[in-house]
């Protein structure tokens, strides 16, 4: 397996994440799209770490940081989602147009 194979896989993940975000179906699918993008970045870091980096510990530390931050992000986002759901009983992006000017 060459480096570019990994980069292309990550690119496909990133693009799939873009589709999930841009088609704006509902808030959870957008979150899934963001997770796909973060994973794309992580694959890149690990692949570069394996094939090009000067110090092969860096990439792994970066990916661990990314995983940790993603978990934190999801925790906050889901709690906001719960408040949103309690207030509106709906988590559809289309419905969230009230404050648009």
């Amino acid at each position: 397996m060459s480096l570019s194979a990994f980069l292309l896989v990550s690119l496909v993940l990133f693009s799939a994440g873009l589709v999930a975000i841009m088609s704006r179906r509902n808030l959870v699918t957008i979150l899934v799209g963001i997770e796909l993008m973060l994973n794309a970045a992580s694959i890149n870091f690990m692949a570069f770490n394996y094939y090009t980096a000067v110090d092969p510990v860096v990439g792994q530390i970066i990916v661990l940081v990314i995983i940790g931050l993603a978990a934190a992000e999801v925790a906050i986002f889901l709690s906001i989602l719960m408040v949103l759901y309690r207030a509106r009983h709906d988590v559809d992006v289309e419905e969230i147009r009230e404050i648009r000017g």
Partner: peptide, 19 residues
Amino acid sequence: RMGSEGATKYMLQGMVASA
């Protein structure tokens, strides 16, 4: 209602930008 909607929008866009 207002708070959670505003936060959702801000957070989603922020998360996409940081990704």
